[in-house]
C-alpha cells in the first residue's frame, strides 16, 4: 500500500515527529511504500541541518535523512511554512538573499500542492501533529 505522512510539529518540542519516524519504519518493514512525507507548520524544523542535539539523544533530522536515503522517501518541506521559520535551500537562499542555507540532505522545499498531490496519489494519508 502507498502511504503519505504529514508532520505538523517541530522535532524535540513534540513527540509527533518521532511517532511519524517510528510509523514510517514500521510501514517500510511491512513492505509498504512511503510516497511522501510532508512537513508543515513547525514541522518544517525537521528539515534543518543546523541542529546539534546531545549525543545521547536521538538526532531526529538526521534520522529522517537516513530513512529517506535508505528507502527512497520524498521528504518535502512546505515553502510557505519554511519561509516563515527560516528553513532555506539554495533556491530560497538566492531568491531571498540569505547568507546561507540549512536544508538537511534528503529534504526539498516545495509548495503546498505537494501535500494535496500526496493525498491524491496515496492510499492512506496519516497526519501527526499537536
Amino acid at each position: 500500500m502507498k502511504f503519505s505522512i504529514q508532520v505538523s510539529e517541530g522535532p524535540y518540542n513534540h513527540e509527533s515527529s518521532v511517532t511519524a519516524i517510528n510509523f514510517v519504519k514500521a510501514a517500510v518493514e511491512a513492505g509498504h511504500d512511503i510516497f511522501r512525507v510532508f512537513f508543515y507548520h513547525d514541522g518544517v524544523n525537521n528539515g534543518t541541518n543546523y541542529a546539534t542535539p546531545p549525543q545521547d539523544d536521538m538526532n531526529i533530522q538526521k534520522t529522517w535523512s537516513e530513512l529517506a536515503a535508505a528507502h527512497d522517501i520524498d521528504l518535502v518541506v512546505c515553502v510557505a511554512a519554511a519561509q516563515r521559520r527560516g528553513i532555506v535551500d539554495e533556491g530560497e537562499m538566492t531568491r531571498n538573499k540569505k547568507d546561507g542555507m540549512n536544508i538537511m540532505d534528503g529534504f526539498r522545499i516545495s509548495g503546498l500542492g505537494q501535500l494535496i498531490e500526496a493525498g491524491i496519489e496515496s492510499d492512506r494519508l496519516v497526519v501527526f501533529g499537536d
Partner: peptide, 15 residues
C-alpha cells in the same frame, strides 16, 4: 491560518 492556506492551494486540484 495555515489550514486555510492549504484549502486555497488545494482548490486548484479539482477534488
Amino acid at each position: 491560518w495555515e489550514s486555510l492556506e492549504v484549502v486555497l492551494i488545494g482548490a486548484a486540484f479539482d477534488q
